[in-house]
Design a protein around this nucleic acid. Structure first.
Lengths: 240, 240
DNA sequence: ATACTTATTGTATTTTGTACAATAAGTGAT
DNA sequence: ATCACTTATTGTACAAAATACAATAAGTAT
């Protein structure tokens, strides 16, 4: 529970759509939290909902910093790819009765309108260790194909994030964020296939990807696999 | 001057980058306002700045509605193409001393941090009639190549708008908004050239543009011109 | 040596982008 | 009627990129 409301701007929040890639199952999932109820003695009246991680911004932080802070608090990982993608500001977006209980325990002014700036983050599921923070009972990964009903307008926010990453996968440096430091071209192809939700031809995929200026061939192959070992590749470091 | 502050959310604003196309001179311009000073007897102390039109949002309106209202108040035109493109929220974005005077006369809490959601609008300059509203002394069009120093972080906002329209002119339905209902391919080409700031080959431009599913050939040609009359074209109506 | 599994590669075709200049259809002057 | 003038319109050759499609290679296990 927050100690006080003083450091927070009560009218603007940041919500983060964290997309996680499970390489083994080749699945894209979204990180959800389950809301934590109010004080224990009234807990039986509270119906927790799933939501994406988000919080009011603090007065002294920028939006980008707020997004990073929220992810760090919840996901316990720094340095993630993080990008603002849209701001949601319908006057009634926090006025649904289903959300009133939660707001009443978390907000200085539970009826206040809140505009939320939405961010997109990409992570490898095996790389992070989500742990429930003060605003969550638990965290969970859910397939982007089976997203439950979420608090507030979070279903809308997640949908918009998926639209955006599908429209511009390269721009979003998907491979860099969602694959290990060294990877095979088959791994890269699997990732592109799950994001675009369609199969790609191996030969054509390799032809096009090898024009990518950020891809470098390593001096290393797979070992111990029951088939021809694949070449490892990596991404060049980005200049800051 | 605003009658009261009650209907306004004092922490979130909408700013509009209005890009105007002057077909005769083939120039892109941005619509600026000159800030109006405070009460007349103190006016000599006030240094008005140029700014893009923007205002605090009202509590009962959505962000899209706020953008439309602001444009309507200032530009006196409805139904413009209007698109949210980024939200600016640096904690100090309204804390520059140069902006303190203006804020002190316009805001309930002049020191409050304001997050602004930025919108992009495209208009034909000859189609609208900007008139100074309560928040402006005058309005003016300025070439995108010579933008003066603006209030707050408005230079940054305008730059980002230009980046976006240049990256995706088709997506932004540039032609539809910036040309008359019927137009020639030369007019369309001139527009694309001024947006991209480079010359295009006539034959290749026509080849590529004729794949555009929204372009239809009309049964009408130019009349009375001192040269071969050009075919008129139009855009298909968009489905809502 | 063989079976098994995934990695790797080439070729023909189509589509798209690019560079480049001659002809067409009006008007106004003679 | 002819000519000068201005902008509109169009084609061709070439390069680059996207697409469809299947055989061979390099390991491991038996």
């Amino acid at each position: 529970m927050k100690d006080n409301f003083l450091n927070y701007n009560n009218y603007v929040s940041v919500d983060c759509v964290v997309l996680g890639y499970n390489e083994v199952e080749n699945k894209l999932q979204v990180l959800l939290i389950k809301q934590k109820g109010p004080a224990p003695n009234t807990a039986e009246l509270f119906k927790p909902q799933y939501a994406i991680p988000g919080d009011l911004i603090k007065e002294e932080e920028s939006l980008d910093e707020a997004a990073a802070r929220i992810l760090e608090d919840l996901v316990n990982v720094k340095g993630l790819f993080l990008e603002q993608f849209y701001t949601f500001g319908h006057p009634d977006r926090v006025k649904d009765p289903k959300d009133a209980d939660w707001l009443s325990t978390r907000r200085k002014d539970p009826l206040a309108r809140v505009i939320t700036v939405a961010y997109l983050a990409l992570v490898r599921i095996d790389q992070i260790n989500p742990s429930a923070g003060y605003f969550a009972e638990q965290t969970t990964w859910r397939s982007i194909k089976k997203i439950p009903k979420l608090a507030f307008d979070h279903n809308t926010i997640v949908s918009k994030a998926l639209d955006i990453i599908r429209a511009h996968p390269e721009q979003h440096l998907v491979g860099r964020e969602l694959l290990p430091n060294k990877f095979t071209l088959s791994q890269l192809q699997n990732l592109y296939e799950v994001i675009q939700n369609k199969e790609l031809d191996k030969r054509n995929f390799r032809k096009s990807i090898k024009n990518n200026e950020y891809l470098i061939t390593l001096d290393e192959k797979q070992k111990g696999v029951l088939h021809k070992p694949a070449q490892y590749y990596a991404f060049k470091k980005l200049k800051k």
